[in-house]
């Protein structure tokens, strides 16, 4: 196993983690501010990818598609917040789970109705094709480096937004005391819609960026959704910092586990069996990690104070 290969795998883990962060940030924000479990967050990811693919196919520009994905996901988020989600804030988690589970069914079949059953085409923009040289002689796709950069930029942006702006102040106030900020004259309904749309837009952005790497198809959001939940639970629900660290931890564990475990098993087993055993354990690894962390820190690594 050479050094460039190892560096490449670490970058892969980082890129995967950053993508998870875009999903997890929205989820954890929505949970932290409104106390809502949103299973339909994966559907917003899918909406972003489909919007990007459709607009890119119509206009020939990935960048217009990217803008469309942000707009479409934010709009879809705002619409479901106003029609459905806002009736759920006062309900218990069970009702939220069922309602957003129903939203998944509606989004998935609705998307299939509009776009048909076959996967859509979406490619990376010409500007970001090709590979960059890594120290040590390796090569790494520019597009994936760009994804990492976008993820870091979003993390910084959120940090500034929440820590330094008026909206962020209201969001933080909303997290700690809902009645109080209502009393201060903040329109809490609008604030919630804004936060939900922001989370949705981040999911849509992730969907569009990932859509260019994989296939744009119905149901693409569900595996990501489960992983994003794992991330926010590991990180501590409601904590953006926890979501960031959780994402990177999960991304690295998943990627390096898939890569290293078969090699480890190969020390004691024949190659073909080792590959199978390693892959089996690798697919369970994230959940094992999560169970271990929760066994020792029942509220995640960076639990919010509430």
């Amino acid at each position: 196993m050479s050094l460039p290969l190892f560096i490449e795998q670490i970058l892969n883990g980082l890129q995967f983690g950053v993508m998870l962060f875009l999903m997890a940030a929205g989820l954890t924000l929505i949970f932290g501010v409104m106390g809502l479990i949103n299973l339909a967050h994966g559907s917003l990811f899918m909406v972003g990818a489909f919007a990007c693919a459709a607009v890119a196919a119509a206009t020939g520009s990935f960048w217009l598609g990217l803008a469309a994905s942000l707009a479409a996901a934010a709009m879809a988020g705002a619409v479901i917040e106003i029609l459905v989600i806002r009736r759920l804030y006062e309900r218990d988690h069970l009702d939220q789970v069922l309602a957003t589970f129903a939203l998944i069914l509606i989004f998935s079949e609705g998307t299939r109705w509009v776009f048909g059953s076959f996967p859509l085409y979406l490619d990376i923009p010409p500007l970001l094709t090709g590979a960059a040289s890594l120290p040590g002689g390796g090569q790494y796709p520019v597009y994936r480096l760009a994804v990492i950069a976008v993820g870091i930029a979003v993390a910084l942006g959120l940090y500034v937004l929440i820590g330094r702006t008026r909206l962020g102040m209201r969001i933080r106030a909303g997290e700690s005391d809902r009645e109080m900020i209502g009393a201060l004259g903040v329109d809490i309904g609008t604030l919630y819609t804004l936060v939900f749309a922001l989370g949705a837009a981040l999911a849509g952005l992730a969907g569009a960026m990932v859509g260019a790497l994989q296939s744009v198809q119905v149901g693409m959001g569900e595996p990501v959704l489960i992983l994003a939940f794992v991330v926010i639970v590991i990180g501590g629900i409601g904590s953006i910092k926890g979501a960031l660290l959780g994402s990177i931890l999960v991304g690295l564990t998943e990627t390096l586990g898939r890569f290293l475990l078969p090699h480890l098993f190969a020390l004691i087993l024949p190659a073909s069996e080792a590959a199978g055993m390693g892959a089996a354990l690798a697919s369970m690894l994230i959940y094992i990690l999560m169970a271990l962390i929760l066994a020792f820190r029942p509220r995640g690594l960076f639990a919010a104070s509430t």
Partner: peptide, 12 residues
């Protein structure tokens, strides 16, 4: 190599 069923990222 055996990958995870439903896996979508093959960078590794």
């Amino acid at each position: 190599v055996y990958t995870k069923l439903g896996q979508t990222d093959y960078a590794a």
